[in-house]
């Protein structure tokens, strides 16, 4: 008789920024339920995420979202094998709500608890679409991150390039603010870029020849200066063209560096992760750049898995759980938890 292989269900909780999210994932690869309560409408009036407001919303939402996720999955907590929660990085007050909810839930049902690093989650969102093939390269682009991460196996993360100043998403937000676009600005620039033309050759920071690091602050300043100078000279610049030219510069650097790194490290897959992966301009350019290369597979998650969600935390948590990682009842929110420190944490069964 063969061994009976039981399905494994991990419940994930994510509250690191402005989304209260709970999800259930089967065997690390199948999405069973994915509930996200977004606070974006509430933060709009402030022109950005206000940490205290975000934390307040999380407390109001967390049990509701939990209940909704179990209803969506048509499951009971007893059927869940472990609880995974975003431990960091993120807004500390926001993280604490998810962490303490996860601990109470795990305690009540005496279930194992696993802490997950948020960026590891973004990468693992892709595993809900397609199984990983190692080595793989991940381009993580979000409001707080621009990184190239090499994975040789599950749970191993090597940062081979990162931003030296602004994250790509941050540059988008700042340029959007200069263009007086409503918050969040990224999607507005993406939309305008499609209506405009690349008329200005904004700088691209390639840095040293062998570096996979990024820098976007020079580009951001250049856009702001260009707008300022034009205004002083009374020249009318088309918003659409500014957006298109700015986006061209960002997308060019991101896709070129990602491709170069992919070839240098001989990876099989390139995974795009993080909120900026929703950017249509970036998606199109990456597809163009990688599409003709038969040795490389480009994976970009669908929109609902690019932005913050808990399915990605459950997916990454499944791997951590199976590798023997366990969090204690003293698990804390860790607002600056790096991917490398997370990868090097010890196994405590």
């Amino acid at each position: 008789m063969g061994e009976i292989i039981m399905d494994q269900y991990i419940l994930g909780i994510e509250t690191s920024c402005d989304e209260t999210a709970v999800a259930i994932v089967r065997n690390g690869t199948e999405l069973i339920a994915n509930v996200v309560a977004s606070q974006i409408e509430s933060h709009k009036r402030f022109g950005g995420v206000v940490p205290e407001i975000a934390s307040r919303h999380h407390v109001e939402q967390v049990t509701l979202v939990l209940e909704e996720a179990l209803e969506e999955a048509d499951m009971k907590m007893e059927e869940i094998d472990a609880i995974a929660v975003t431990e960091g990085p993120g807004l500390v007050g926001a993280l604490l709500v998810g962490v303490n909810a996860a601990k109470a839930l795990a305690f009540a049902y005496q279930k194992p608890l696993v802490g997950v690093q948020h960026i590891a989650g973004h990468i693992y969102a892709n595993r809900l679409m397609k199984e990983f093939e190692f080595p793989l390269l991940s381009l993580v682009v979000s409001g707080g991150h621009t990184e190239l991460i090499l994975m040789k196996e599950h749970g191993s993360f090597e940062v081979i390039g990162e931003t030296r100043d602004d994250a790509a998403g941050e540059a988008y937000d700042k340029v959007a603010r200069t263009l007086k676009l409503p918050y969040p600005g990224g999607p507005h620039i993406d939309r305008l870029a499609h209506e405009g033309e690349v008329t200005i050759d904004f700088p691209r920071a390639w840095l040293e020849n062998d570096s996979f690091d990024f820098s976007f602050s020079g580009l951001k300043s250049s856009v702001i200066n260009t707008l300022h100078n034009a205004k002083q000279k009374g020249i009318e610049l088309k918003q659409e063209d500014i957006a298109a030219s700015f986006q061209e510069s960002v997308v060019d650097v991101l896709s070129t560096k990602a491709y170069k790194a992919a070839k240098q490290y001989g990876v099989k897959q390139v995974i795009v992760a993080g909120g900026v992966a929703a950017n249509k301009g970036l998606r199109a350019r990456l597809e163009e750049k990688f599409g003709s290369d038969e040795e490389l597979e480009l994976l970009i998650p669908p929109l609902h898995l690019c932005t913050d969600n808990a399915a990605m935390i459950a997916a990454a948590g499944t791997v951590a759980f199976n590798q023997g990682h366990r969090a204690g009842w003293d698990l804390n929110g860790n607002p600056s938890l790096s991917l490398e420190r997370y990868a090097k944490r010890s196994v405590t069964k």
Partner: peptide
């Protein structure tokens, strides 16, 4: 303390809901 209040309340709410 806003954070202190939330830690206790989140824990209490989630325990009550779970149980």
């Amino acid at each position: 303390s806003f954070t202190g209040v939330r830690i206790g309340l989140t824990t209490a709410k989630t325990l009550a809901w779970s149980l």
